[in-house]
């Protein structure tokens, strides 16, 4: 139920803050997603989306840090 999927923001249309929306690419499938809750997201960012809304901008540096933490032990 709380499934959320990462996708890449391809374009943004912010007519009003609440209806700020964008085309988000999920591995080739592009959907229009509400971006009102990620005002900091820009084109090229990955956002995590849930039921048509982006709920978080994915922080690349932190993602790398997590993977480095794990790779540090292999």
């Amino acid at each position: 139920m709380c499934l959320a999927v990462p996708g890449r923001v391809e374009s943004i249309d912010d007519a009003t803050p609440e209806t700020r929306a964008g085309r988000v690419n999920f591995g080739g499938v592009v959907k229009v997603i509400n971006l009102a809750f990620v005002p900091e997201a820009v084109v090229g960012d990955y956002v995590l989306t849930h039921v048509g809304f982006a709920i978080s901008r994915i922080d690349e540096a932190q993602a790398r840090r997590t993977l480095a933490f794990l790779e540090g032990r292999s």
Binding site: M1, C2, E18, T19, H50, I55
Partner: peptide, 20 residues
């Protein structure tokens, strides 16, 4: 509108927009 905190903002926004 079912869900945990994950879904609540989406549901909240929808009611908000319905009023608007």
């Amino acid at each position: 509108a079912i869900g945990f905190e994950t879904t609540a903002p989406a549901n909240a926004m929808s009611v908000y927009l319905a009023r608007q």
